[in-house]
Amino acid sequence: HEHHSDCTQHCHQVKVSEEPVHHHHEHRNLHDIAHIITHSDLHDKIKMQSLQVFTALAEAEAKVHGKTVDEVHFHEVGAIDTIIDIAGCVLALEYLGIEKIFVSNIHTGSGFVNCAHGLMPVPAPATAELLQGLQHSHGKIEKELTTPTGAALMKVLAVSTNDIPQGFSGSKIAYGAGTWDLEIPNVLRISIGELEAEAGGELLVAECNIDDMNGELYPYVQERLLQAGALDCWLTPIIMKKGRPAQTLSVLLDPQNLDQLTDILLTETTSLGVRYYAVHRHINYRKVTIVSLPEGEVRIKYAQMDGKIVNIAPEFEDCKVLALKSGHSLKTIMQAAAAAAEAQLEQ
């Protein structure tokens, strides 16, 4: 995601307070923005992912300025723009049924720009901080081609890759054009498609037993794990020593993600350790499409085995929205969506 914008405008977006925080109408900090997002009509997954991106952005700004997150203020206009950018991107991904994002080498641009703090190298300090762990390069263009907002989106939502992932089959391509006339095409290209999973392969299950954690924390931890690349995550009630009721938190993952996901388990839960072991799996090929009902659109996930459809599953969140909007029961909407999907297959 390369967000092409005027750097002078962007660099004035963030202000770092040198004094205790006093709330004024022209500035918003992370807490203020979190309040706006959490009290919106967006569903919980969109809220959580949007807040994760905003938190990454605020943490990067705070780190490069040597301040706390609460001391980072977003100017009013900049905050509104950034809320729309971030929440809009996350909402679009959910609407399109995107399950995973792969990003190739990110061009940051090069040279210097005049910011509120003086002359700064490209990428801007916060952008450079956010791009750690992602493949990126300066290139020959002396412009700011990647802003902190774009870098934060990729930091939280994407996985870095050298090439198009093996097994990827594209179905649609879209372009976003910048306003600058550069030596190279000033466009961002996005390919949407399906990634055919391997029939087998060795994976890992990492798990920990927990008997002393507030139950309200589990959904948050599971969202963090899934967003960081976990293939699945589940809880199993168990009885530990001395008859204590507890939960086993289990995570299915690719071996390459073990360290990152283990860090989340050890920092976001009360567990003092994590165990892991190898497993194998076989999965059906999946395909997502959209059906239209009188109440609105619903995404449908098909599961195929040996070229035959073996399962049809309407997207729960889509059906929930239509049920609440129309006044029909949720089960009626789900049944109608499944029937429409079957009819679509017969055409």
Rank of each mutant, 00 (worst) to 15 (best):
L51I: 11
D32T: 00
K45P: 03
H27N: 00
K15S: 10
E59G: 11
T55W: 08
S40Q: 07
K45F: 02
H24N: 08
Q13F: 09
V14W: 04
S40V: 10
H35R: 14
H25L: 01
P20F: 06
H35N: 14
E26H: 05
E19V: 04
E61G: 09
R28T: 05
P20V: 04
I37T: 07
V21D: 05
V53F: 02
K47P: 00
Q13H: 06
D41W: 06
Q13W: 07
G66H: 08
D41R: 10
V14S: 01
H12F: 13
H65S: 15
S50R: 14
S17L: 00
S40W: 08
I33A: 02
N29T: 05
V21L: 07
A34E: 15
K47N: 00
H43L: 12
E18F: 08
T55C: 06
H22G: 05
V14C: 01
C11I: 07
T38W: 02
E26G: 03
H24L: 09
L42C: 03
V64D: 05
H10T: 09
L57R: 13
I33T: 03
L30M: 01
I37D: 05
E26V: 04
K45M: 02
S40C: 11
H65V: 10
S50H: 13
I33Q: 01
H35W: 15
A58D: 12
Q49K: 15
N29C: 06
V16K: 00
D44H: 12
A62R: 14
H43R: 14
A34W: 12
H27D: 00
L42S: 04
D41C: 12
V64Y: 04
H12C: 12
K63N: 15
H10S: 08
K47L: 01
T55D: 15
D44S: 10
K15Q: 07
I33L: 03
K63H: 15
A56S: 06
K63F: 15
I36Y: 03
L51H: 04
V53Q: 02
P20D: 14
L57Y: 12
Q13P: 03
T55K: 11
M48N: 09
Q52G: 11
C11M: 13
K45L: 01
M48D: 07
H12Q: 11
H10C: 06
R28I: 06
L51W: 02
Q13I: 04
E61R: 07
D44K: 13
I36F: 02
P20Y: 07
G66Y: 09
K47V: 02
E59C: 13
S17I: 00
S50C: 11
E59I: 13
L30K: 01
A58P: 04
D44P: 07
E18N: 08
I33C: 03
S40R: 07
K15F: 12
V16C: 03
Q52I: 06
I46W: 01
E61H: 11
D44M: 10
H35T: 14
S17H: 00
V16E: 00
E19L: 08
V53C: 02
E19P: 04
H35A: 14
L30C: 02
H43T: 09
S40N: 06
H31G: 09
E26W: 03
A62Q: 12
L42Y: 09
V64F: 06
R28P: 05
K63T: 15
A34G: 08
K63M: 14
I36K: 03
K47E: 01
A62S: 15
A62T: 12
H24Q: 11
S50A: 15
S40H: 10
H24S: 14
E61W: 10
K15H: 08
A34K: 13
H25F: 02
I36W: 02
